[in-house]
Design a protein around this nucleic acid. Sequence first.
DNA 1: ATGGCAGAAGCATTCTGA
Length: 281
Amino acid sequence: MLIATWNVNSIRTRLSQIIDWINQVNPDILCLQETKVVDDDFPVDPFKKLGYSVEVFGQKSYNGVAIISKIKAKNIKKGFYDDSESNQNIEIFQDQKRLISADFNGIKFINVYVPNGSSMESDKFKYKINWLSCLASFLDELEKKGELICLMGDFNIAPTHLDIHDPTKYDGGIMASEIERTALNNVLKGKLIDSFRLFEKNTGHWSWWDYRNNAYELNKGWRIDHIYISRELTSKLKSCVIDSLPRSNLRPSDHVPVMINLDLSDINAGYFEDDDDFFEI
DNA sequence: ATGGCAGAAGCATTCTGA
């Protein structure tokens, strides 16, 4: 099963590039961030024509997440909590559409667009850290239920110095600070594993290049888009690749897709049995 | 230290992103 994440920086501007990429790669699940469109205006038809279902959680101009899938989603949840579970502490996070989750084949897929944080002195930075704290609580609840998890998206954090083209210049700053890395590790708690690092130990692999200063041509990138999976799933993980080619498109997104291949053939045999039924591939 | 580039809103310019 091919599972991908891509911050497309506007679904409407990038639509033809996304459709082209789907036709080339044929992913089973594609999680998008920064769709920048209200749900009613999301272009669902081009995806439906290719046999995909579309689940969206968007807003005007900013943020917005979506899950495109060949498999039918179960338990679609938009934001940290459904309306029925309203919680005073997280209500301030519901106006920014940054998280959508759904179950596929007995695995909880969580698609996130973590706030950027602007500068470390800003209120937006506090918002980023608080948002990550909310995400940690959200995952704690899932952990308690024993859910298998795939947490993916644009994290706006380089996990280590290996994930920055110039760590001497940027380590310790925004997207690379100890505060952010600690907040991220508090989400992962050693239970969720960075898929990419199971295959690649070296630096020089980026998922985002700034539009400015010829960053892509100079290969001055960052690895800030990630796919984390439950430790129990790592034996099923066959690959994790960053497809940097779409960054050379005309009018590209500043991010590129990251993709894993999970071999869930044993789930077909009913290995993971749900309360109510077996999972279809 | 700042700007640079891009997208959305909306029609000049501002806000936001990372």
